[in-house]
Amino acid sequence: MESAVLVSILLSVIAASTPLLLAGIGELVVERSGVLNLGVEGMMLVGAIAGFAVTYSSGSASLGILAAALGGMAMALVFAFLTLTLQANQVATGLALTIFGIGLAAMMGAGFVGHPVPKLPGLDLPLLSAIPVIGPLVFGQDFLVYFSIAAVIGASWFLYRSHGGLVLRAIGDSHDAAHAIGYPVIRIRYLACLFGGAMSGLAGAYLSLSYTPMWAEDMSAGRGWIALALVVFATWRPGRLLLGAYLFGGITILQFHVQTMGLGIPPQFVSMLPYLATILVLCAISSDATRIRLNAPACLGRPFHAAG
C-alpha cells in the first residue's frame, strides 16, 4: 500500500477516534467519582452547536471551542444539580439530559443550518509538518486532537498521581467513608460532572468544527453512547480508554474498506464489532468479582445522603 494512502487512512482513524476519546475521558472521570451521567450525547450536541454558533458568529474558532466547553458544562450543571443536590435518579436524569440536549441543540441550531465554517486549522510547523508519513500524522493535527491526548495523560496523572485524584477515587468507591473522613463528596462530584460536561462539549466542537465543519441536527449520531460504552470497555482506566477509542475509531473506518474490498464480510457485522467487544469485556470483568472490585467504582450511580 502506498504510504500516502496509509497516512490518509490513519488520519481518518484519528478523526473518527478523537470525539470518542474526548467524551470518553470526561465520562471516565465522572464515573470514577461515583456518578453515572448518561447524558453524554446531549451534552455533546449542545457543545457542538454552541461551538459552531460562536465560531460562525464571531469568526474565532478559539472562542467557539471555549463556548462548546461552557455549553457542555452548563448541561452538566443541570445534571449535577438534579442528581447531587436534589438526589434524583442518575440513570433517569442522564437519559432525560440526552433527550433534552438533542432538542435544545436543535432549537439553538435552527438558524445555523446550511452554513459552513472553515475547518479547524491543523498545526503547520515548518519542516516538521513536511516530513513524510510522520509529518501529517504527528505534526499536522488540530488543537482538539492534541488536547484529547493531553487530556488522557492529564487525567491519568490526576487519578493516580495526585492527592485530588485519590480523593476523587475514594469518593467513587465509598462516599460514606470519604464523607466520614471529611472530604466534600458533593463538591468533588460537582467538579467531576463539570469536567465531564466540558469534555463532552469539546467532543461536540470537534464534530461541528473539524470532523464535519457544519451544524446538522443529531450530528453526533450516537457517538455519545459509544463513548459511554468505551468507558466500560476501558474498565475505567485512562490508558485503556485511549487504546479503546482508537480501536473503535479504527473499526469505524475499517468497515468501509472492508466493503469496498469485497471481502464478503457484511458491513453490519463490522460496525457492531465495537459493541460486541464491549459486551465481551463486560462479561469478562463481571465473571470475576475481584476484578469488578478493582475496576468499577463501587458507588457508581448511587446517590449520596450526607447522613449523620
Partner: peptide, 25 residues
C-alpha cells in the same frame, strides 16, 4: 463505481468516513 452502504440516510460523521475510505481506495 466503488460503493459503500452506511445503513443510514443521515449521519454526517459516517458519511465523511465513507467518503474518505472511498477516496483512499
Amino acid at each position: 463505481i466503488k460503493q459503500v452502504f452506511i445503513n443510514s440516510w443521515y449521519d454526517p460523521g459516517k458519511e465523511a468516513d465513507a467518503a474518505k475510505a472511498l477516496l483512499d481506495q
